[in-house]
Amino acid sequence: MVTEKINGLQLFIMILLLELGSAVVLGFTFEAGNSSWLVIIMSTLGGIALYVLYTHLSSYHPTLLLTQAVRKITGPVIGFLIAIVYIGYFFYIAARVLGDFSNLLQLTILQGTPLLVVAGAFTLMVGIASYLGIEVLARTAEVLFPWVIVFGGLFLFFVYIDGLPDFRNLQPILDKGWKPIIDTTFPQGLTFPFGELIVFLMFFPYLAGSTNITRVGIMGVIMSGIILTITQVTILAVHGAETAKLLTIPLLETISLVNIQDIIQRMDPLVIITMIVLGFFKIALFFHAAIIGMHETFLIPRSKRIWLVSGAGIILIIITYMISHDYVRHIFVGLEIVPMYVHVPLQIILPVLLIGIAFLRHKINP
């Protein structure tokens, strides 16, 4: 039974932090050339549709977690298997994102530090947050969110004050036509990060009062889309599409160019701290979704959470190392293979099937 509670503002903030998460660090692909920013706009529109799909699925059993609802919709046996699949999915995404940010720290401020050490430190923070619960995690997000927005705004402000962007780099628009934009939007842009909102089906039952989850979520998706579009336009204007494709961490390498009168410069550490905050919340939300899914699916009592979190944390570190110690391969798999063969089935196909089954059940047994 759900006892912890979060409010609508906290839901909005967590949606925004999750959406910005690794998308800010890795950036959207620049394969669509000068018009890559159009990919984000189209992906945002698709993200709104996906979020509405998820809230509609939740409306059939609003008081149940996703792992509970699938058993109500498809029956105990098939539902149990689907629940295990989603638990594994949330855990896998947590490991992928942990790999993203562990490599980020290795490449920047912790050069020479073993990946296992960096991932272990991250996992310790995430584990503590999961042990304390979604209510504490939501309150922490509420406290840190203003700082993320202020620092993020200042970073972009300094880039423009220093005169780094050259908007001629955005011309001509549609230089490669619509095909690369459409190809990049689906499946990559739609599923990462917008399709990852499916994780909130594990948190909707914690909402207190009469929060309109559809309206709050759509506002979060639109706001994150605006921020990501501004970021993408800035990167393109500073570097151009061909150079941006070669950058490991486009946003960080853009802001590192700022030098205003030899006074405001070397903001890299502050940028990295901001990115770490974003990464922490994304990892924590997926990890905690897996934890509460295991609690209810395998009937693990709340009193055993310390052992569950500890064991899952150790496994998370091991899986992270296995899939991300080769960073080039890690990025290739994350951007070229996972969207089509992991995200699309679990973010789009299966939810649509579940809604169809739930609709038929409701018609037969209103």
Rank of each mutant, 00 (worst) to 15 (best):
K5G: 07
G8R: 07
L9G: 02
I13C: 05
M14F: 03
L16A: 09
L17C: 05
L18F: 14
V24I: 12
V24F: 10
F30K: 07
A32C: 11
N34W: 00
S35K: 02
L38K: 04
V39F: 00
G47Q: 12
Y51D: 03
V52I: 15
V52T: 12
L53T: 14
Y54I: 06
L57Q: 04
Q68R: 08
Q68W: 04
A69H: 04
A69D: 00
A69L: 01
I73V: 14
P76T: 05
G79L: 04
G79P: 08
A83H: 11
V85F: 14
Y86P: 04
G88Q: 11
Y89W: 13
S102F: 11
S102E: 08
Q106Y: 11
T108H: 02
I109P: 00
G112S: 13
G112N: 04
G112Q: 09
T113K: 10
L115R: 05
T123H: 07
M125G: 13
G127V: 06
S130Q: 10
Y131V: 06
V136T: 15
A138K: 04
V143S: 05
L144C: 04
W147E: 11
I149S: 08
V150W: 13
F151M: 15
G153C: 10
D162T: 10
P165K: 06
D166R: 13
W178C: 00
D183V: 13
F186N: 09
P187T: 09
P193R: 12
G195Q: 05
G195D: 01
E196H: 06
E196P: 00
I198A: 01
V199Q: 05
V199Y: 08
F200P: 02
F200Y: 10
L201G: 06
Y206D: 02
S210Y: 11
S210Q: 14
I213Q: 10
I213M: 09
T214K: 12
G217K: 06
S224K: 09
G225P: 07
G225D: 12
I227E: 10
I230R: 07
T231C: 07
I235V: 15
A237S: 15
E242I: 02
T243N: 11
L246I: 07
P250V: 03
T254N: 10
I255Q: 06
I260D: 13
M267A: 09
P269N: 13
P269A: 13
I272D: 05
I272C: 01
V277T: 14
F281G: 02
F281W: 08
K282D: 03
A284P: 05
L285S: 05
H288I: 08
T297D: 09
T297R: 02
F298Y: 15
K304E: 14
L308M: 14
G313L: 10
I314M: 13
I314K: 02
I319S: 03
M322Q: 14
I323G: 09
H325L: 03
L335Q: 11
H343Y: 15
L350A: 06
P351Y: 05
G356I: 07
